[in-house]
Design a protein around this nucleic acid. Structure first.
Lengths: 172, 172
DNA sequence: CGAATTTGATTGACGCGTCAACCATATGCT
DNA sequence: AGCATATGGTTGACGCGTCAATCAAATTCG
């Protein structure tokens, strides 16, 4: 029996305390504000939205900077429809390209354009710096450890099956 | 000199580690998933979006269930334009009402309708339960304490002026 | 083979959030 | 008083995300 299970059962009867609720709200507010700050900064620095960045990151890390549409959707955990809309907009802006797939005529292969690759390269460093400044610099090593533990616990609570420590399914 | 400052300066030269970046991504992903789950549940249970809920909560807690538009915007920390759009939609659905303000003819007074108040009342308990089940039940008291500490630190890092422990400015 | 089903991907409608522009009223200044 | 400016709030345009519907190509199976 895993630790999370024991906690879950033990807590199952209790009502949620107002302190716990306040922490939940603070979590939502604080992460929202961080996303807002970093998203705005990213846009100013590089003209890319967080969504653009996620797409370009996944493509950059892909073998040959090229992915099937549904693979890409799986990597960044988006609905296919959302991805299709967004790829349309990114294609119009010249960031990515969609070609017919050679092995499956239904499929599309998404790849980086020169422009897209360049924009992404230019965005990387300032974006990392912004994350460092606004987030990483604030916390002590102990706090990082505690946060990692908490996130592992939560992930494990939400999706009990998947090994919570695999680094593969992390993306921006 | 506060603790956060010392950490900030000490860390200021270092590059961000890949571990720290992974924790950031995990934080973004995990909170996004929690919001997604709770938002969907709220909608199923009560037909309200998280945004609706925030508006109704603020109005419910207001003196006389009635707020000036910009006060409301301040309470839930929204841009006035966003609020105006959303109030328009909520008004169409019969959840809130907008009346001319008696003391300032430019202003609008937003208030709950019977329907809106009822919907909110019906939404409260299942929503709290969902937060408890998906979030609060997963964590130990020690983890709660650690998380509260981390969030306080981050808030303090982002907005150094404001006392980070005031419970007033927490909302959904 | 040929019909039914599944899969890969796109589309349209609609609610949402942001930004800039825009009224109308209130306030401040001389 | 009279003009400038600030304030409260709304609007329109546009990018975004979700849902349901759609379409074509592939696969399954009788």
């Amino acid at each position: 029996m895993r630790d999370g299970d024991r906690v879950t059962r033990a807590a199952a009867r209790r009502r949620m305390s107002v302190g716990e609720l306040a922490i939940w709200r603070s979590l939502v507010d604080t992460t929202a504000e961080l996303r807002r700050i970093l998203g705005a900064q990213l846009l100013r620095d590089s003209g890319l939205s967080p969504a653009d960045y996620a797409v370009l990151l996944a493509l950059s890390e892909a073998h040959g900077s090229r992915l099937r549409s549904s693979e890409l959707a799986a990597v960044i955990d988006w609905e296919r429809s959302r991805l299709s809309h967004h790829l349309g907009r990114m294609e119009r802006r010249g960031l990515i390209r969609r070609d017919d797939c050679s092995t499956d005529s239904r499929g599309a292969e998404v790849s980086l354009t020169e422009d897209g690759a360049g924009m992404f390269r230019g965005a990387t460093a300032p974006h990392a710096l912004a994350i460092k400044r606004n987030f990483a610099d604030a916390l002590t090593p102990e706090q990082f450890e505690a946060l990692a533990d908490i996130l592992r616990t939560l992930q494990n609570h939400l999706r009990p099956e998947q090994t919570a420590t695999s680094r593969e399914d992390l993306h921006v």
